[in-house]
Design a protein around this nucleic acid. Structure first.
Lengths: 213, 213
DNA sequence: GTCTATACAGAGATAGAC
DNA sequence: GTCTATCTCTGTATAGAC
């Protein structure tokens, strides 16, 4: 019996591994196409073609386009979680937040799935009903909020803004229209990245000058 | 002949006026639906229904959905131009820029067509080929760039950022994902507006603190 | 120029053999 | 579980009468 178990139970079995691998490939392809073309424009046929399987096979893994794309979004959040996990312990809160911003901006410049669904996309509606997605987002939000609170306490982030606002301001950079706008005008990704970080963190008005009216 | 002219030429004739009025109504409805639902989700049937005419009649005015929505986008830019025209002469460049930002943010909060097409929307591709749209955008960009240059010269805007970057940073606020994000979390539009302006102009890091790494 | 009715295409989803 | 072939629905666009 023990030997049987070793052969059948110990790990997912080749079949299950294949299954999982294919599912991962599907999610990866979806994630890429979602970033390149957006939810409405992307088609399930394209995903199937990209993976190299038939569309019907895809529907054995996922209930529908919504389901598929929700999984892709969860995949992106999971990547973010792993990134946050991998941050060196010696980094302070501000440095962590800066690294996060850098990561989000690079993600968009790489034409990958943005962390946030596009405004008014049907995907946004779907995600509202996806508990797994909300749980992941909740987890990363809590972690980031803690860093923000620390940075504010240390006087490194502006205290006038609620932590939640700073959180949203950061996350929103993942889909900032400024990046495509500058790219369209022919700038290098490296420049765009630097400007985006600078304008987000430092703002637009001059330093010692008058505050808002 | 002169009298004939007075009767026939002097103004568009009732028919033409009706035509123009209907066309305006179509564009207005399109603009609203475009803001509410986005290009891909919005349907021509909905526009026709909103105006109260048959879809076929709509196609007598516009060649297709692309054409229709391009007209709507031009309409939005034209509104922006009128807003800029109406700014009081006594306002300085910084105040003008601030008013502009306020206007753009309010536009988005009102669920109207954002000044910029959504990322990866088919509309963006269409607009690339629309000379009228580019001409309008070029005109407003030039005007705003002039104010930015003045404000930078006066030390009121950061000189480290190229004027073009500041321009894009402003315009991009018209489609900033931060607004929907904060709204989803249950905040008032007034608060969101204030936070968006503050974080855009003043940035996130504390004032006298260390610069970027 | 406006309508009703319809053609046409694309994409999501499924049936049924293997 | 995967495939090929097909269904079905939705949405763009047009034909043709008035």
């Amino acid at each position: 019996m023990g030997r049987m178990n070793q052969l059948t139970q110990p790990r997912p079995s080749f079949k299950a591994q294949m299954h999982q691998a294919r599912e991962d490939a599907i999610v990866a392809a979806t994630s890429r196409l979602l970033g390149e073309k957006g939810f409405e424009t992307m088609t399930v046929d394209e995903v199937a073609a990209a993976v190299g399987i038939a569309k019907a096979s895809l529907y054995k893994h996922f209930a529908g386009k919504d389901d598929l794309c929700a999984a892709a979004m969860v995949h992106v959040v999971a990547r973010l979680q792993r990134f946050l996990d991998a941050l060196p312990d010696e980094l302070g809160p501000v440095q962590r937040l800066q690294a996060l911003l850098h990561w989000l901006l690079q993600l968009q410049l790489g034409d990958e799935t943005p962390l946030l669904p596009e405004r008014n996309s049907a995907l946004a509606q779907t995600l509202r009903g996806c508990d797994l997605y909300h749980a992941c987002m909740q987890e990363v939000s809590a972690r980031i909020l803690a860093w923000i609170a620390q940075a504010q306490a240390a006087g490194q982030l502006r205290r006038e803004l609620p932590p939640e606002v700073i959180l949203c301001a950061r996350l929103a950079r993942a889909a900032d229209p400024m990046l495509p706008l500058l790219r369209e005008r022919g700038h290098d990704d490296a420049d765009i990245l630097a400007w985006a970080m600078d304008s987000c963190l430092g703002g637009l008005v001059a330093r010692p000058a008058a505050m808002l009216t």
